[in-house]
Design a protein around this nucleic acid. Structure first.
Length: 585
DNA sequence: GCCGTTTTCGGCCCGACTGTTTTCAGTCG
């Protein structure tokens, strides 16, 4: 019966992101209809669980494996299955009839929660952000019960901010802003500890807002300094323990202030994602404690904790590095003493995939080499664009010869520092590389990358990349999915097939560390590693100032649970040289 | 709706700030 009204098979395959969005929308609509809060959370949790899956969703539903994922029970499993097969599910359709489409958008306006959205919808028939703005201008919001002049003004301001800054910020941009604020906070007399928390400390690839934590016995001066920083555009809230501002850049910043002996609990509290924190607090409760941002409590009395390490120990866990605090299995691993020893920036001894003035780089080979040396690196892999990349000044064969000669001369002069000879070869439409074998053989390494014609189907793009990876001259797969953060999704790809090919042909998968890319995504690293893939962290530098980007890639590698041994460019120069001399078949 | 050394029912994390309130609801993280 119900099936008769279901839409037909959707025209495009339903993706993981589609399912996660649908579940999140269900949660939002349930909030507005005033459903059981725990039921709402179940849908939110399920949405997050689906979003973080690294394996193929269709396969997991097919095999029933999805039921093993924490947060997915029988009911939501059925919803997901229905969504994959028909494009929707009953609960979703039922709610969509009750809650008009534009209403969910209003939830994204800061200060508009489910109750207020429901109130303006029911009392004023407001169904969109546009209508909400109009009502505010007409003074209609202020007269609603529970609303007032101030609330109306706040909503109008929040709409303006929502319009201007609906987007997120690159990690690198947010980090620079946060460091500036942190410095100012640290200079305030009486501040003992301070740190950048939140998603920045977890090294997320994009950042919604900045969280800063400071400890002092006298909060007022810190809050005064913070809320009157020259780059602050608006003060949203100011209290003795928490203040919020919007910077001129549009980034929202929270400052939390606690007492010095509360630092350990607070720094944990302000670093994990919501799910990690909820989970750890539940663990604490089970052990008879209460955990909040001020400490770990046994009844009324606070347990003395010196640092985060001691806090985890009290809860029967090893220290969980901040990057892992995403509730992705780290809590269980910490209890079983099974967390990996994560790679560190200092483990990196050189890096590859760097451009020079031979293609679209802005620094010469010599400048690049000297900058790498100054960073303490032992080697640098040059990989300028290949001849098809005309837009980027790609090298024809004559230019390649000239560059290789210049590199050899520089190596004589700069030894023991080494420039490795390489190229970033375009992967052509049929998967071939961009030079004849003789030219390819003259390089120490070949980074194979897709730079154009992204519009193929998943099957076509996968075949194209697998073909390139199977080429005996390919050493590394550059920016594997081609995404550009905040602007472009990657091309459709069967990553499982790509990982298989890379493992089989011993091709390194690049973690492109350029702050705009951070590709491969950290969510896939564990799966790839389990399939036997090794990685290389490359800055994709086009200027001397960009070589150091590899540290962003290390952050991503850490989020993906990688160790020093998983990453090629932690090897010494000799180790790298030996590995690059792989047999050409 | 999910989950289980609290195990198939009965729980489910915790606190700060604002604005509209005469004691607290709503929102946020």
């Amino acid at each position: 019966m119900a099936g008769a009204h279901k839409p037909k098979q959707p025209p495009t395959p339903v993706t993981k992101a589609d399912v996660a969005r649908a579940l999140r929308n269900v949660a939002a609509m349930l909030e507005i209809t005033g459903d059981n809060p725990f039921r709402i959370r179940a849908f939110e949790n399920a949405s997050a669980a689906i979003e973080d899956l690294s394996e193929d969703l269709h396969a997991m539903v097919e095999s029933g494996e999805l039921l093993e994922v924490r947060g997915i029970g029988k009911s939501i499993f059925a919803d997901v299955k229905s969504m994959l097969e028909t494009g929707t599910f009953d609960e979703y359709e039922k709610l969509r009839k009750k809650v008009p489409a534009g209403i969910l958008e209003m939830l994204r306006v800061s200060g508009m929660g489910p109750k207020k959205v429901k109130a303006v919808y029911e009392k004023l028939d407001i169904k969109s952000v546009d209508e909400l703005e109009q009502a505010g201008r007409d003074g209609k919001l202020a007269v609603l019960p529970g609303f007032g002049e101030k609330t109306q003004l706040n909503i109008l301001n929040a709409i303006a901010r929502y319009r201007k800054y609906a987007q997120r910020f690159l990690f690198s941009v947010a980090e620079d802003e946060a460091n500036g604020i942190l410095e100012a906070v640290r200079r305030v007399k009486g501040v003992k500890h301070s740190l950048i928390g939140g998603s920045l400390r977890r090294h997320r690839e994009t950042i919604g807002d900045i969280d800063i934590l400071a400890t002092t016995d006298d909060a007022d001066p810190v809050m005064d300094v913070f809320t009157s920083l020259p780059n602050v555009a608006t003060v949203i809230a100011k209290g003795p323990t928490k203040s919020s501002v919007i910077m001129k850049s549009g980034i929202h910043v929270d400052l939390r202030v606690v007492k010095d002996d509360e630092f350990a609990a607070a720094s944990h509290y302000f670093s994990g994602n919501k799910e990690h924190n909820t989970e750890v607090r539940a663990r604490a409760k089970k052990l008879g404690y209460k955990l909040n941002e001020y400490g770990l409590f046994e009844g009324e009395h606070a347990v003395k904790i010196k640092d985060e390490e001691a806090l985890f120990a009290k809860l029967g866990m090893d220290f969980i590095p901040p990057e892992l605090r995403e509730n992705a299995g780290e809590i269980e691993a910490a209890e079983e003493h099974a967390l990996p020893k994560l790679i560190e920036v200092g483990d990196i001894r050189g890096t590859f995939h760097c451009h020079s003035t031979y293609s679209d780089g802005r620094s010469t080979l010599r400048e690049m080499a000297e900058a790498a040396k100054a960073l303490g690196l032992e080697y640098l892999g040059i990989a300028d664009h290949s001849q098809t990349a005309v837009y980027a000044g790609g090298m024809d064969k004559a230019k390649v010869k000239k560059q290789l000669r210049e590199i050899e001369e520089l190596n004589q002069e700069l030894a023991p520092f080494v420039l490795f000879k390489g190229v970033e070869s375009d992967i052509l439409l049929d998967g071939r590389l961009d030079y004849d074998d003789e030219t390819l053989a003259s390089f120490d390494h070949v980074v194979a990358s897709v730079h154009g014609q992204f519009t193929g189907t998943e099957a076509q793009m996968t075949k194209r990349i697998v073909t390139a990876v199977s080429n005996p001259f390919t050493t590394m797969l550059g920016h594997p999915t081609g995404r550009v953060l905040l602007s472009r999704d990657g091309y459709p790809l069967n990553l499982t097939a790509v990982f298989e090919a890379c493992a089989a042909h011993k091709v390194f998968i690049e973690i492109n560390a350029h702050p705009y890319r951070l590709d491969l995504d950290w969510r896939h690293l564990r799966t790839a590693k389990d399939m036997g893939v090794h990685f290389v962290i490359n800055p994709d530098a086009h200027h001397t100032s960009e070589i150091g980007y590899f540290r962003y890639g290390v952050g991503i590698a850490r989020k993906g649970w990688l160790t020093k041994g998983d990453v090629f460019n932690t090897k010494s120069t000799d180790g790298v040289r030996a590995a690059l001399r792989k047999p050409r078949s």
